[in-house]
């Protein structure tokens, strides 16, 4: 059901003009806590000078500019780059900060990250989503990632790992696994029959994930991997490391339907079913 407030937002959205969005994010080191309380070292960008195991989602409208302070509160140097936007990166010494600016003329999904020692720093958690919108529909956001809990401590201490043996044991969306993903209003798709719902997905991990929707097909609106994918109507969406996808879902019936990685190993967590990438979408009449 559309509310009056929703109509106001729509009008404002349609009459909006290019703006400069000012944001500030902080690089912090701490640890990730998994669904079974397993913990391991982790680094993220944060909205505040307080650690969160999920990176903030930076949102703009098409043609907006982003003015972003990146503050490095970590004890080591970091870099900053936007995947599929800029080939150059900024270096941020430990304890220092940098102001970066970007203009986004194309709607879609982007990934900001630390490319230093690739893929180590990105793998350790320093990768988040930039959303550039050209609509005012209800939207949902998945930062998809997997973790090998035994590797983070080694990588944090510069102990070499062999990526050809990578075998992650935790699988998260916005830092959560089943059943906690459903409690994340940014991640859980909720709507009504006939709504246009937009889903933004970015894979900030190192594995390929293959996300399957029950109940509905969705249309690919944007793919950072290949323009040939745009317009395809599918129920399963592979997403490669550092790829972003934007989907449009228009539910034709009510129901609560699962959404999960169809690499069924990824619906586990620490070898337990179903503690991985599994959630439900909820569509009301």
């Amino acid at each position: 059901m559309k509310s009056f407030a929703g109509i106001v937002v729509l009008i404002l959205g349609l009459s909006s003009y290019a703006a400069t969005v000012e944001e500030k994010i902080y690089i912090l080191s701490d640890s990730m806590t998994c669904v079974d309380n397993t913990t391991f070292p982790y680094r993220t960008f944060n909205d505040f000078n307080a650690f969160s195991q999920n990176n903030p989602i930076l949102q703009l409208n098409q043609d907006d500019s982003l003015s972003l302070w990146v503050v490095n509160f970590d004890s080591i140097d970091h870099n900053f780059q936007i995947e599929d936007y800029a080939s150059t990166f900024e270096t941020i010494p430990a304890g220092d900060s940098v102001l970066v600016g970007y203009k986004f003329v194309n709607a879609g999904g982007y990934i900001y990250h630390d490319p230093l020692n690739a893929p180590t720093n990105q793998y350790l958690g320093l990768a988040g989503m930039i959303i550039v919108k050209d609509h005012s529909h209800d939207s949902f956001y998945w930062n998809i990632k997997e973790h090998d809990s035994t590797w983070n401590d080694n990588l944090l201490h510069n102990v070499a790992v062999d990526w050809t043996t990578y075998e992650p044991d935790f699988f998260t969306i916005n830092g959560n696994s089943n059943p906690d993903i459903n409690a994340d209003p940014l991640a859980r798709i909720v709507g009504n029959v006939g709504d246009t719902l937009i889903l933004y997905m970015s894979n900030t991990g190192n594995s390929v994930h293959s996300m399957h929707l029950h109940g509905y097909h969705a249309t690919i609106l944007y793919s950072s991997k290949s323009a040939l994918e745009v317009g395809r109507e599918k129920d399963t969406f592979p997403i490669h490391p550092m790829q972003s996808l934007v989907l449009r879902i228009v539910p034709d019936k009510e129901g609560e339907y699962p959404v999960h990685d169809h690499n069924l190993v990824a619906v586990t967590g620490n070898n337990l079913y179903a503690n991985g990438m599994f959630m439900t979408m909820l569509i009301s009449p």
């Binding site: 293959s210 097909h217 040939l228 745009v230 599918k234 129920d235 399963t236 592979p238 169809h262």
Partner: peptide, 20 residues
């Protein structure tokens, strides 16, 4: 996935992932 592609693509290599 049970739907025609927007346009046919000439290719000798097809990648498909779990569930596709």
């Amino acid at each position: 996935d049970g739907r025609p592609l927007p346009s046919a693509i000439n290719t000798d290599t097809v990648e498909l992932y779990p569930g596709e």
